[in-house]
Amino acid sequence: MSDLSLSQIHKSFGRTEVLHGIDLDIRSGEFVSLLGASGCGKTTLLRIIAGLETVTRGTVRIGGRDVTGLPPEHRDIAMMFQSYALLPHLSAFENVRFPLRMRRRGSRAEQAERVERALETVRLADLGHRRPSQLSGGQQQRVALARAIVSNPQILLLDEPLSNLDARLREEMQVELIEIHRRLGLTTIFVTHDQDEALSLSDRVVLMNAGRVEQQGSPREIYAAPATSFASSFLGSANLLPVTVGPGPVARLADGQQLAIPAGQATPGERLLVLRQEDVEMLPAEKAGDLKARVAIRVYLGARHRYMLDLAGQRISVMAANSLLLEPGEEVALKVGRILLLAR
C-alpha cells in the first residue's frame, strides 16, 4: 500500500512551468530522496506534498485520500525546513510540543511525555528549556528534527535539513537519521542536492532534472547504471568522452585510440563513454593499458593523488595511490575496469 501517490503533477509560476507532469508512488516506511541541482523543482514538489504550494494540474494522495485541495494543516505530514524555522519566542520544548498542541493530540501530560521522548530520541533531553537562540546550529537542527517526528506523521518531509551543518556534524546526523528512520519507520521524503547524502541515506533515489524525473531506483541501481548522461555526471564524478562504436566490439575515441568493449554494448553508432574515477587505474607509461593519456596537473590529497589527464582532447580526472608519482607532461597508461556506454 502506498503512503503517497503523485500523479501528473504540473506546476507553473506565472507563465513558466517548473514541474512537467511528475508521477511518483512511495511505499509505507520508505525513505526516498529527491535529488537534483538547485532549480530542478525538487523543493517545489516537496512544498506541493506539504500543501504549501497549490498544483496547476495533477493529484496528490496521502494514504489513499485525495488531499490536492487541502491546506497543510489538514494533511498528516511534518516538515523540516532548511533554515529549521524554529519559533524564536518559544523554548525548544514548546517548539517540539507545538504540532501536538495545534493538532490537539492528547492531554497536556501526554504531550509532555511525547515531547520528552522526541527530545531523547535526538539526544537533547536536558536542553528543552532553552530558546533557539541559545542553541548551537547542530542543536537547533535536532530540535527541528524532534519537532518533525513528535506527531508521528504519516509522511515526514525533509527539505535539505543537513545543508547548514559543517562536514563533521553532517556525517553524524546522517547516521542518526538512518537510525531514527529504522526505529520509527516513518515514510520519509528527503530533498537534497548532495549525491552522497542521497546515496547513503535512501531506499530509493529519485533524480530530478528541469522539472522531470530523470531516473529513479535504489542507490546501487542508479549509481551503477545511470540511464542518461545527466544521471551519470550528477552521480559520482564521471568523465564523459564522446566515442564512435563499431564496426565490431570497439569504441573509437576522438584521437583515434581504440578501446575494446563488451559485445553486449557494441551496437554501432555515436556514444558517450562513462569513465568513473574508481573504474580507471593509472599505470606507468611502459606498462600495457587500454588507453594512453598525458598528465596535466597533479593534486596531493593526503591519502592519495588526483591527476588531471589529457585524453583525446579532453581533461579527465583520475585517482591514484601515493606509490605512483608522475610529473606533469609524462605519459601514462590507463586500465579501464567497468565500461558503460550511453546514447549521445
Partner: peptide, 21 residues
C-alpha cells in the same frame, strides 16, 4: 521569516492560528 508561518501550517495551524501563534 515567512518560513516560520509555513512551518506552523505544516504543524497543524490554520491560517488564523499561525497568525495568532
Amino acid at each position: 521569516d515567512p518560513r516560520l508561518e509555513e512551518a506552523a501550517r505544516t504543524m497543524g495551524c490554520s491560517f488564523l492560528q499561525s497568525f495568532r501563534h
